[in-house]
């Protein structure tokens, strides 16, 4: 067991009150000699993160949302396995479900996915070795989303560098499995539950997203972007453009960036 100093591994200032307990073998343990065992340790680590619960709740909600927007269960599961980004999936379901065209949905999804670019850029150097080829990192890049990104900063210092890819494959696949199960449960419940409980499951999505985004806010500009994004959306719907989310998002984000510049100069 590794003993950690709390606060040592704060992922770029992200609050991690639970960072104190990483239950992995020591770096020099023979446990790390096999990549398969490293994969296993990654999978087991799914159970030691609070974010798994948040993901479970979110994907329960996505399953219910897919059902109520008249998509099939296979569609919902495929979206989780191949998109693997909660916000993009919700944008996709809610825009297609409310009658947007394929192009409008694709634009909204791609803008929401830009944030994956800096995440992938910052995560990959943590597991590169001189022997690593780009193709070894494709699955890691695919699995990278906000949860994995945060967990990389927490777990990877306790994983030998040459086993990190296997470990992240295990952790990522474990999280995908949890979310596929959550999707199935949410979808089934929405189809069979009373309207009140189905509404409660759908309500999980905005609550879980709002609070996890709020806890990721590092700077004042992030707070401005979040609050303004919430407030401007109802105004943008008045335009009835089909890309309302895009309009309110770009305006609110640009204002927040302006605030960031203004504060940097002041």
């Amino acid at each position: 067991m590794t003993v950690l100093t709390p606060g040592l591994l704060d992922a770029a200032g992200i609050r991690q009150p639970y960072a104190a307990d990483v239950a992995l073998p020591p770096l020099d343990s023979p446990q790390w000699q096999s990549p398969f065992r490293a994969f296993g340790w990654g999978m087991r680590s799914v159970g030691s993160t609070v974010l798994t619960l948040v993901l479970f709740a979110t994907y329960l909600g996505i399953g219910a949302l897919a059902h109520d927007s008249h998509f099939s269960l296979a569609w919902a599961l495929a979206s989780t396995a191949f998109v693997w980004a909660g916000p993009a999936q919700i944008i996709l379901i809610s825009t297609l479900g409310s009658g947007a065209t394929i192009v409008q949905s694709a634009i909204a999804v791609t803008v929401s996915a830009i944030r994956l670019f800096p995440m992938v850029v910052s995560v990959l150097p943590m597991m590169r070795t001189p022997q690593t080829r780009r193709r070894h990192l494709i699955l890691v890049a695919h699995l990278t989303a906000v949860t994995l990104w945060v967990e990389c900063f927490r777990f990877l210092p306790h994983v030998p560098r040459e086993r990190r890819i296997a470990f992240i494959h295990g952790l990522g696949c474990g999280l995908v499995c949890v979310c596929l199960v959550a999707n199935t449960i949410g979808y089934t419940l929405a189809a069979n539950l009373s309207q009140t409980l189905a509404a409660a499951i759908l309500m999980l999505t905005p609550l879980a997203f709002l609070f996890s985004t709020a806890s990721n806010c590092r700077e004042f500009a992030d707070v401005v972007a979040l609050v303004l994004g919430l407030v401007l959306f109802p105004l943008a719907t008045q335009l009835n453009s089909g890309v309302d989310i895009l309009i309110s998002g770009v305006v609110a984000g640009t204002v927040a960036y302006g605030v960031h510049r203004w504060r940097a100069q002041a």
Partner: peptide
Amino acid sequence: AVATAILAGVIA
């Protein structure tokens, strides 16, 4: 910032 605001729009 734009990604955060889009996410906020989705919540809204």
